[in-house]
Design a protein around this nucleic acid. Structure first.
Lengths: 128, 128
DNA sequence: AAGATACTACGATGAACATCGTACGTCAAG
DNA sequence: CTTGACGTACGATGTTCATCGTAGTATCTT
């Protein structure tokens, strides 16, 4: 868990989401989830995981015959990387503009808006 | 301006940001801005713009000798695409989580937070 | 023990990206 | 008119991504 891993690609991110939701898993586990969404070969997922291990995106436990993979970084850490990256690339660093973009991209429920507001309160309170 | 253009790539997005801020511009104009940030050949920018025109990301006016390019979509439209894309790929569609990611990715000023809150108020008011 | 099953390793392939060099046309000086 | 500055067009190249097939090895089943 030394150097920060690079930003995950699209396919890599999809695998990471599986790992974040299921926890450590075998290639088979992950493949089942992925394949249920789009036709994908087992070895494709395997190869991805091997590459991801090289990049440091996942850690591999190969003590057992079926290797077990887990995300090397917690979900929120990676999310922060991705959000920050887009924030700078497309929104000049403006969190407000990013939020505008997100809200206009989909209908957001009143509940979600309320949660958002509450989160803001929380965040502001922890900063003098 | 028929079918929606695809999501811009990294290099394409950088060019678009120039077009959004300067308005319609020639290859030379754009190249000057880009090259001031990182060493880049003139023809590289030219080629990018030609490809972007094919993809429909920019419109080209070739009535003059120096062609004039402009973004085919307004900034906010593209921003919405990008935010929505990331929102679904990495945040399960949760605007709140995206906001968390963005805020934790950089220090956000009190002013920015206030603007954000005001923007939320505004947005909520327009939705019963 | 033999065959089927389950894994990993890895090379090959094709598409998308990003970058650049070269060719070629136009136009305004000199 | 010729030459140099400036412009577009486009092929070539190297890289990263994503996907898959094949080979080889270990394990299970009968």
């Amino acid at each position: 868990m030394q150097p920060d891993p690079p930003k995950p690609t699209e396919a890599e991110l999809e695998i990471l989401t599986v790992l974040w939701s299921r926890g450590p898993a075998t290639v088979r586990d992950i493949h089942e989830v992925i394949a249920s969404r789009k036709p994908t070969q087992y070895t494709t997922v395997l190869k991805q995981l091997q590459i991801m291990a090289e990049k440091g995106l996942v850690n591999r436990d190969d003590t057992e015959r079926s290797h077990i993979y887990e995300a090397s970084r917690p979900m929120v850490w990676t999310q922060s990387q991705l959000a920050g990256d887009l924030l700078h690339r497309a929104f000049k660093g403006s969190a407000r503009e990013l939020m505008m973009g997100a809200l206009s991209a989909q209908k957001t429920s009143k509940r979600e808006l309320a949660e958002l507001r509450r989160m803001l309160d929380q965040y502001e309170k922890e900063m003098p």
